[in-house]
Amino acid sequence: MTQKIRTLVVDDESLARRGLVVRLQAFDQIELLAECQSARQALAMIGEEQPDLVFLDIQMPSMNGFELLREVKASGFKMPLVVFVTAYDQYAIKAFEVRAIDYLLKPVDHERLEQSIKRIEKNLEQREQEQQQQRILNLLADATGEDCEDILKRLASGDDVNVARYPEHIAIKESGEITRVAINSIEWVDAAGDYMCIHASNETHILRRTMKELEEELNPQRFQRIHRSAIVNMEHVEKLCSRQNGEYHIVLRNGKELKVSRSYKDRIKKLILNP
């Protein structure tokens, strides 16, 4: 690994804590952030430093190691990799139930610690690869307008992923003039007979095209049909409201309310809950 493994050592026994720290100094890939003598202190450090790894004693006063992990999760902090270090082996099964990466018995010998760190490095490398893959998928999703899951399915089946290019502006001819309207400024579009009304930046432009033609030029990751004759820019949606009569309306940031037809309701609800 090119980056050091940012590490905390948590143990209420000073001798055990210092002994582990001394052994860890033999591994160049380990960067010791702090020694914590209590779970409360460790909780604060995890929230502040977001370490990659924690060597954690199980039996500690006030809050034990398992309780600390529950507090980390409840606080919404990034969960580090955990290696439990304890003088008792009866906690081994429970340690792996909470997905600890390893379980070391005190006193920890060098060979066993080396095995544990190799396992940690492998796990972190795999995690980094998965995060890189997700970043690439997100970029492809933005460029193609497809969901990440759909892209993975197409790649798995050997199909090509075509990168669509969506225009940044749309040209609208009105009263002998041609206005370039930024796509991102469009808040919503609604049909009016053979025309469409493009609502953007507190202005309304009239465009003589079909809804289907315009929809093909808009990135579906951002623009969604909410009605047979209406499209909205999801970046401008503030909330989705349900009425007593069962109808749904979206409210834009400018206060405009637009009705959502039943056929599009579930799709819009999903996008709002999982942007």
Rank of each mutant, 00 (worst) to 15 (best):
T210S: 15
P107R: 01
P61C: 00
T86K: 01
L15D: 13
Q132M: 10
Q221I: 09
E174A: 00
Q134G: 07
I178V: 15
Q244D: 15
P220M: 08
R112T: 08
L240P: 09
R180T: 07
R70K: 14
F55Q: 07
A26H: 07
K270P: 06
R119C: 05
L207F: 10
L152C: 14
M63K: 00
L81H: 11
E114G: 12
Y103K: 03
I93K: 04
T210R: 03
I5L: 01
P61F: 05
R262P: 04
G255N: 15
D12W: 04
A143F: 10
Q134T: 11
G65C: 09
L20E: 02
F96A: 01
G176Q: 00
Q25R: 13
H249S: 07
V161N: 09
I183K: 00
N64R: 09
M1Q: 02
R6S: 15
E97L: 05
I93E: 11
T2N: 15
S14E: 15
L69E: 06
E48S: 13
I206L: 08
K173Y: 02
K106Q: 00
Q133L: 12
I183P: 00
I30A: 06
E216G: 07
F84N: 01
L271F: 08
L271C: 08
Q3G: 13
G176K: 00
D190Q: 11
D190P: 02
S185N: 11
T2G: 13
V237G: 02
Q224A: 12
T179M: 03
R17A: 04
V85Y: 03
V232R: 10
A95V: 02
E97K: 11
R253S: 11
E177D: 10
V237K: 03
H110R: 12
E114K: 13
Q25W: 03
A191L: 09
K212N: 09
E48F: 08
F223Q: 11
V10D: 04
S229D: 06
L137I: 08
V108K: 03
N233F: 01
I151Y: 09
K78R: 14
T210E: 06
K153I: 11
H205A: 06
G65N: 01
R127A: 15
L104I: 02
P51C: 05
V161D: 13
D102V: 05
A100M: 07
Q244G: 09
G76Q: 02
V21G: 07
V237N: 02
P51R: 07
L155V: 13
S157L: 07
S75K: 13
L81S: 03
V72Y: 06
Q132V: 08
R243D: 14
V72M: 01
G158M: 07
Q29V: 12
